[in-house]
Amino acid sequence: MKHCSFIFGMIVGLAPLAYGADACGGVGVAIPDDSLPGVVVPIVVDAPGELIDAVTVDLDITHPWVGDLVVTLESPGGVVVSLLDRAGIPNTGFPGVFGCGGRDVLASFVDDASQDAETMCSTTAVPVISGLVAPGSLLSAMDGGLADGVWLLTLSDRSAYDAGTLNSVCLQITTMPACSVDFTGDGELDIFDVFAFLDAFNAMDPGADFTGDTLYDIFDVFAFLDAFNAGCA
């Protein structure tokens, strides 16, 4: 499988993987201080027809007060996952009402990590959030959605006096092939997929060329129905 690209010409790494898609971006993006909307960094993933199986997010942020940061990732399907949500807030006294005053993030966010950004604050460690870190909400919420398209990383600094920079973000996406007869892309096989196929067939959409012979004939219909009846794994 092919893939991996991204926009703004800030390609920092293309590492094609079998059944996976990596995409990086966001080099040197300033995170505006004390800004609720923050900055949104788009990352284009080129993985047509592939579904998300697992996501790991590598974040490299320079920031003198990581407790200021709210970071979310939105998949092309619109699923939003929290990566960081003002580490240390709400607190029980430590590290304080302004959250973790530690410096910098250099971490891979993955669901099964044992470390939690909320509790790994330290007065001395730099970067204070490092290694494998569990995200604020599960990245697996994105699983099954389309990997292909524009992903949005939003970085919002919620407190004044400290500003930072996104050095880079990399998405490591493990994918699985999409079901070719799920024409509606809703994850279910039903009569609407048949209707959608027939519409594509009549419009001579390349996706309806099921035999791959560049011809739109009855054999494409038979091939579709065979596949439809076989179902998707």
Binding site: N91, T92, G93, F94, C121, S122, T123, T124
Partner: peptide
Amino acid sequence: TADMLRGRSA
């Protein structure tokens, strides 16, 4: 480490 000296107690 600093954590040992000051704890990370809540």
